[in-house]
Amino acid sequence: MDCTLVYLVAYAGTLACIGAIAYKVRSYIKKPVHVRWELYPVAHDSERAAYGGSYLEDADWWKNRQKPSFIAGMKGLLIELLFLHLTLETNTKLWYRTYPFHLGLYLLIGGILFTCLTAVARIMGIEPGIVLTAMGNIVQVLSVLGFLGLIAGGAGLLHRRLSQPDLKRYSTREHFINLCAFILLGLIGLLTWLGNPSFFVMARDFTVSMITFSFAPMDSFLFSFYITFGFIMAAYVPMTHMGHFFMKYFLYHDIRWADQPTQDNPATQKKIGIVLGFPVSWKASHIQGDGKKTWAEVATTNPTKPKE
């Protein structure tokens, strides 16, 4: 069957997903410097993270401050991302539902990456050997486990949102729509996987076709539906609160763990100079911002003293 529309949706979905992520990331990093607002433990302090300590525990800390460990920071973030460690600690009942859901997504993303590799290998004319065959088998396994995770976890989350009064009160239409959409995606994927000889081969051939713009026809209606729905979801997710999957990096590294003192950081010093020149328009009588006075001027004005 002619699947041009499916390919067009796939291209549009890919572009929209990348565009939305880029827009959100750019709009975050373009913001001016903010004050420090860290929260301990800070993972990149490799010596003290275990008990929540910081370099501020040393007298004259500015003389011998240990540099933050990039590896320890990434390790902390990865443990959180891969195992949803904080949810396990603070909300264990929810973790039993949300972890399969997230794990399902991770497995599917892993499957997509392997599929892309095999597609590139095919385009380059590499003969399928042991490695590529193994990768195909891995995709088969990752996909079915991913679908099951999405369905089981999504259903568990849906049930919890409906059955727990405290969670129900805070659940919106959007939560239910999102969860139903993911469960549906998992179900279509699972049916496609069960109803066809090889989900992997279909996925790889589709990827080859997409990369080479050959718009090859697809035999399975379910698979084309899965692809269409999947790319629509890919475009939609970063635009919602579910964008936390990439914004978490900034929430952790730029806010929660941002303990770098200004004195070590000429770039931050320069940025502080800029924000102190921003105009203030807060109206309260002790500020009287008129949209022209700067932060520096307002902060150096003592409202209790007569004007000079």
Partner: peptide
């Protein structure tokens, strides 16, 4: 301009809460 001090923290706290009540 008015809230450079806390804008990134506030905006992300507005946009990314999953309402899990943890």
């Amino acid at each position: 301009e008015n809230n450079w001090t806390f804008l990134p923290m506030l905006e992300t706290s507005m946009n990314y809460c999953a309402q899990c009540n943890s």
